[in-house]
Simulated assay, not measured.
Amino acid sequence: MRDQTRHRYLQGIDRAVALLQHAVDTGAELPDPGQLAEAAHLSPFHFHRVYRALTGETPGGTVLRLRLLRALRLLADPAQPVTEAALAVGYETPQAFARAFRQAFDASPSELRGQAERLARAIARCSQAPALEREPAAELRVEVVSVEPFRVIAVRHRGDFDGLNLVYGRVFEWAATQGLVEHVTGIYGVPYGDPRDAPAAGLDFDCAVAFGRPAEPGDGLIAEDLGGGEWARFRHVGSFDLLDEVTDAMLAGWLADSGRELRDEPLFHHYLDDPEQTPEVLLRTDIYLPLA
């Protein structure tokens, strides 16, 4: 069952990669994230994270790698002009192609095509996704827990995830005006997207607080329900900056071997310590992944 689950996830990612490969090879328009998620049979909430966790690169990184791979193969033909190779793999100008090429290989297209062994190594490197080194699933100690639905009051922040403490401050300022600060029962975060993959302008993050008594949101705040059903929970101890990497390990390790599927809703974090009072290396965060 576990092997079948991992195989199913990998097959789904392979279908998404095949769509990207076809677009690069034919010069067609790249599929949008929804089309890639549909091909992979994954929720749009989780597609990018699962993709990165299982391949070691983002979909955009895959496109760049496949474009460069095709260009390398074209350049292996001495009769292929560099300008035509650039246009054939989707670059609008030879200059843009040369910049991407030099950044990837520390050489210009003309320089690399004149070094057969180096060109062959570059082709071999671009032919495979990056190798992953993941913490073994057994060491993650992931629990499957049932979580009763609970209400939170949140500010939905759009933009860079840096400085979220100021956004949480808005929730607590409102709570102080309502006499709710002493009734706080938990601090939560709901990331809609992965900050490593998407431009900041398209990222949403709910800075959320739960209270032990009923509360209605004020201006600029929202009420939402978290929990409900079964969740995979892992307790991370350390910097908040490592939460995305730990989530990758949960997806590539525990989830892919668990026989379980993800539910179509976002993951969330439960922050158990105050970063202003707790050393970074001791900060505890429970990561919750929704299970079908």
Rank of each mutant, 00 (worst) to 15 (best):
M1N: 09
R6I: 02
R8N: 05
L10Y: 05
D14N: 12
D14S: 13
R15V: 08
A16M: 02
L20H: 06
H22M: 10
D25K: 14
E29F: 14
G34S: 14
Q35N: 14
Q35I: 10
L36K: 01
L36C: 08
A37M: 03
P44H: 14
V50H: 07
R52H: 02
R52G: 03
R52N: 02
L54A: 00
L54I: 01
T55W: 01
E57R: 07
P59I: 04
R65Q: 06
R65G: 05
L69Y: 08
D77S: 14
P78R: 06
A79Y: 09
T83N: 11
E84S: 12
P94A: 08
R99A: 07
R99D: 13
Q103I: 11
D106R: 15
S108L: 04
L112P: 05
R118Y: 04
L119C: 09
R121V: 15
A122K: 00
R134V: 03
P136N: 05
E139H: 02
R141Y: 10
E143D: 13
E148T: 13
V152N: 06
V152T: 11
A154S: 13
R156L: 09
G159S: 11
F161R: 08
N165D: 15
R170N: 06
W174H: 03
Q178M: 12
Y188P: 02
V190P: 06
P191G: 06
G193R: 06
G193D: 01
A201R: 12
R213T: 11
P214S: 12
A215S: 09
E216C: 12
G220R: 15
I222L: 14
E224L: 12
D225K: 08
D225V: 15
L226P: 02
G227N: 07
G229R: 12
W231E: 07
A232Q: 05
A232F: 03
F234I: 03
F234E: 04
R235T: 10
R235L: 02
V237S: 07
S239V: 08
T247L: 05
M250W: 03
G253Q: 14
S258I: 05
R260W: 04
E265K: 03
F268D: 06
H270A: 11
H270E: 10
H270C: 15
T278L: 06
V281C: 10
L282Y: 15
L282K: 14
R284L: 13
T285M: 00
D286R: 08
I287T: 00
L289D: 00
L289P: 02
